[in-house]
Structure formats: C-alpha cells, structure tokens
C-alpha cells in the first residue's frame, strides 16, 4: 500500500517535467518523423502519404549534398580549432599573470555577446574595401578581398566567426577544470624532474579528459546548431557556398513552406546527431579517466 502510494507520489512529482518534455520535445519529434512521410499540404491541396518519397528526393537534391559537405567542413574546422584555442587560452589565463582577471574577461566576452550582434560586427570586418580586415591588409598593399562574396573564402569566413564565438565559452570549462588539479602533482613531477611538456602530456591532459568530452559534445552540437550568423552574413550564399544543414532546413521550412521536406531534413539531422553523440559517449568515455 505504502509502496503504491510512493510510486503515485513519485509519478506526480515527475509529471510537470514529463509534460513539458513531451509537449516540446517528444511529440514534435514524433510528428516530424510522421510528417516526413507525407507531402506538404498547400491551400486547397491536402497532404498525401508518399512513404519514402521525400527521402528519395533528398538523395537527388544537390543543395542538400552541398549543405552536408559544407557542414562536414564546418564541423571539421570549428570543433578542433575552438577546442584547442579554448585549451590554449585557459592555460594562458591559469598562469600567474598581471591583469589576469581582465584577460579572462576579454577571452570570455565573445560568449556573452548575442550571435546576431557578433555577426553584424564581423559583417563590418569583412566588408570589402572599408571593412577592418581590408583596411589592415591594405596597409601592407594587399588588394581588397570580397571575403563573404567569393566561394573560396565565404565558408571559412563564417567558420572564423563561429570559432571566435565558441572558444571563450569552452575556455571557461577548461579553466575550472585546471583549477581542480591538485598542486602537489606539479610538485611531485618537479621532484621527479619531469619537463613542463611531459607534465602537461602525462598529467594535465588526462585529468582534463572528462572536460574535453563535455566540451567536444557541445562543440559537435554547436557545429550543427550555430547558424544565426549565416542568416545575418550570407543567407547561405553565394550559390549555397555557406548553406549549412540547419540553415537549409530553415530555408525549406520557413521560406518555401515545404514543411514535409523540412521534416525529412530534420529527421536526417537528428539521426546524424544521435550517431555522433553515441560514438562520443560509447567510445571516448572508455578512454577517459574519472577520478
């Protein structure tokens, strides 16, 4: 009797969270899977079940493949660059430097700014002719570059913005982790005569691995989620050179109102993220030393 009461009690306590999760996460996700199997209803044409028709169309859609390729490149650059940069910055501001607090704040500032504001600032940096970048390069006699308007530079230009924005955020986690490393380890290593590099490689880095996993998971999600600056800076152009998967979903869903195809793309994105998260947790976690 009391056990039944306890379980009712527990269910009731869980109910608010379950309702919220179901209403805003699970039900929409399931509806997305179902919606991907139908055509988009328009005005006087109702939706029709077409099975995997949307997925077949997806395989033939050159913009989808372009967005996928862009996203792979975007992830392949932003993830390692922002994580390494974050670690370097954390090591720098962990040392005893004069003005350390100011430096920490400076590194963290990009994280505090909203992405839309950041994108507008960078839009100015990249403006051909009188943008900051061209003005500085102009001092060295470099001709003006159309950073966002040329296929060769546009994607890397938006990657730079993402790295700039993300690195400060990850730095905070590394900084916190660095401060939990006990000082006597360093003293012990010094007595053993270990060089600073050896200490970093054999002691600091392994102790940072749990943080690295957390940061990596976030970086991977960020690489697929962070598209606000694309909207402001390039709208996916020129000729889809900066179209990322999520931006393409937005475009299909809210510019073309093809909700069924947008649902199909969303399903693919969810599948990719699920696989990546599984890989990270199942494989990386085994190699991580938790204290």
């Amino acid at each position: 009797m009391s056990r039944l009461r306890a379980s009712i009690h527990a269910s009731l306590l869980l109910l608010p969270a379950v309702v919220l999760l179901a209403a805003f996460t699970h039900v929409p996700a399931v509806r997305t899977f179902i919606g991907a199997l139908y055509t988009t209803p328009r005005g006087n044409r109702p939706e029709v079940f077409i099975g995997l028709g949307n997925y077949r169309h997806l395989l033939d859609d050159p913009v989808f493949w372009q967005a996928m390729a862009n996203n792979v490149w975007y992830a392949a650059l932003t993830i390692p660059l922002s994580v390494i940069l974050a670690l370097v910055m954390a090591l720098a501001v962990d040392a005893r430097l004069p003005g350390r607090a100011a430096l920490r704040m400076a590194y963290f500032t990009p994280t505090v700014l909203p992405m839309i504001a950041v994108a507008n600032i960078w839009l100015f940096f990249y403006t051909p002719g009188y943008g900051l970048l061209d003005q500085v390069l102009g001092l060295f006699g470099v001709a003006q570059t159309n950073w966002l308007g040329s296929r060769d530079t546009a994607l890397n230009a938006v990657i730079a913005v993402a790295v700039w924005k993300e690195a400060g955020f990850f730095m905070i986690f590394y900084l916190a982790a660095l401060q939990t490393i006990p000082h006597d380890l360093r003293e012990a290593a010094a007595i053993e005569g270990a060089s600073r590099f050896t200490f970093f490689r054999r002691v600091t880095l392994p102790l940072l691995m749990p943080t690295t996993l957390f940061v990596l998971v976030n970086a991977v999600i960020g690489a697929f989620r962070l598209v606000d600056h694309i909207v402001v800076m390039t709208r996916g152009g020129p000729d889809n050179a900066t179209a990322l998967l999520l931006y393409y979903i937005y475009e299909i869903g809210f510019r073309f109102w093809d909700s069924a195809y947008a649902a199909t793309l969303t399903t693919v994105l969810l599948a990719i993220l699920a696989v990546l998260a599984a890989v990270q947790f199942l494989f990386l976690e085994r190699r991580i030393h938790y204290r």
């Binding site: 040329s150 296929r151 020129p238 000729d239 050179a241 475009e251 510019r255 073309f256 093809d258």
Partner: peptide, 21 residues
C-alpha cells in the same frame, strides 16, 4: 507560383556564374 523557390533557383545559378563556379 512557389515564387521563393523558383527565384532561388535563378539566384543560385546567377551567383554560381558570377563567382566562377
């Protein structure tokens, strides 16, 4: 009809040509 999409097809083509792709 479906104006946004039909003009995007043209926009993409134009930008592809203008950027030399």
């Amino acid at each position: 009809h479906d104006n946004q999409r039909v003009t995007k097809a043209l926009n993409d083509g134009l930008q592809a040509a203008l950027t030399g792709a």
